[in-house]
Amino acid sequence: MYGSGRHEDGGAPRVVVGVSGSLGSLAALHRGVAEARERGAELLPVLAWEPPGGEHGYRRSPCPPLLAAVREAAEQRLRDALDAAFGGADPGVPLRPVVIRGETGPALVHVADRPGDLLVLGRGGGVLHRRLRRSVPGYCARRAGCPVLTVPVPELLAELHELEAMNRRARLHLPAGPGPRLLPAKG
């Protein structure tokens, strides 16, 4: 399968990578390149975008110039993420960037629609981010018709999240004003 350059579905092998610009998605891009190189596959970095207020809000108040500006911003965000990941260098695999309108999880599952595809996703964001937004890796793992590879958060980012959490906990236990003064013990 890896050496043939073609999959049983007749298409060239593809590695689809979800990109947001986060450090987790940049790590996923690097892993995606390694997987594409190993499989002789094309790399599809995918950035999904939605109109401000979501699709429902846009249908209620359409504004084509705003929609065009948001789409252009998404295209620029993908170019910036690719520059950040590869520093302007050729990643050494066929590359076809995709910017798609839609909610992230469903959009990624839509693009990675061949059984021979590999969908690569980063795990990023802090606990609050994961609580506020649906888990894209979880959604994709449940719905994708191809294998899904979740790349762990880079070690440095994990340490940064840990330090931020420690800092928040420490701030919660400190008094609002100047702290208590310790007096020397007598005797």
Rank of each mutant, 00 (worst) to 15 (best):
S135G: 13
A73G: 13
P64H: 05
Q76N: 12
L23M: 08
L121E: 02
A107Y: 02
G24D: 09
G105F: 06
R59I: 07
L67S: 07
W49S: 07
T150Q: 06
R39G: 09
P65Q: 11
L128Q: 07
V16G: 02
V17T: 12
P152M: 07
G126I: 03
E38R: 15
G32H: 04
G145Q: 10
G105T: 03
A12F: 08
A144C: 09
P97N: 05
H129M: 05
L44Q: 09
V153T: 15
V98I: 15
L26V: 15
L23D: 15
R60P: 00
R59W: 10
A74P: 12
L66Q: 13
I100Q: 04
A41S: 01
C140N: 07
A84N: 10
G54D: 08
H30N: 12
G92R: 04
R133Y: 15
V98P: 02
L95I: 12
E55V: 11
P65V: 13
P147R: 15
H56R: 14
P106H: 05
E35F: 00
L44K: 00
T104M: 06
A84R: 15
E55M: 13
A112F: 03
P152C: 10
D113F: 01
A85N: 11
V70H: 13
P45A: 10
E35W: 02
L78S: 07
V111C: 01
L82M: 09
P62K: 12
G87A: 11
V153S: 06
R59E: 13
E50I: 03
G102K: 01
L44T: 01
G18R: 03
E35V: 02
R59P: 00
V15S: 04
R37A: 14
A81E: 12
G125D: 01
G116M: 08
G18L: 10
V151E: 04
L82H: 05
V16R: 05
L82K: 04
G40H: 03
G18A: 08
V17Q: 06
E72P: 05
C63M: 06
R142C: 05
E8P: 09
G32D: 03
A27Y: 00
E38D: 14
P115N: 04
P52T: 09
P51S: 03
R59V: 12
L23Q: 14
L26D: 02
G105C: 08
G10Q: 11
A85S: 12
L108D: 03
P64V: 09
A144M: 10
H129P: 00
P97I: 04
V46C: 03
A107R: 00
A48H: 01
G53P: 11
V17G: 09
G32Y: 05
V148M: 10
G126A: 13
P147I: 04
E75C: 13
E35K: 01
A89C: 11
A28M: 10
S61T: 13
A28P: 10
E75T: 08
D9A: 15
A28C: 09
G57W: 11
D117Q: 10
G126E: 12
G40A: 08
G53T: 11
H30W: 03
Y58G: 08
R71A: 14
T150K: 02
P52G: 07
G124S: 15
E35L: 05
Y58P: 08
D83P: 00
A112E: 03
A74L: 12
D113A: 15
V98T: 10
G87T: 11
V98M: 02
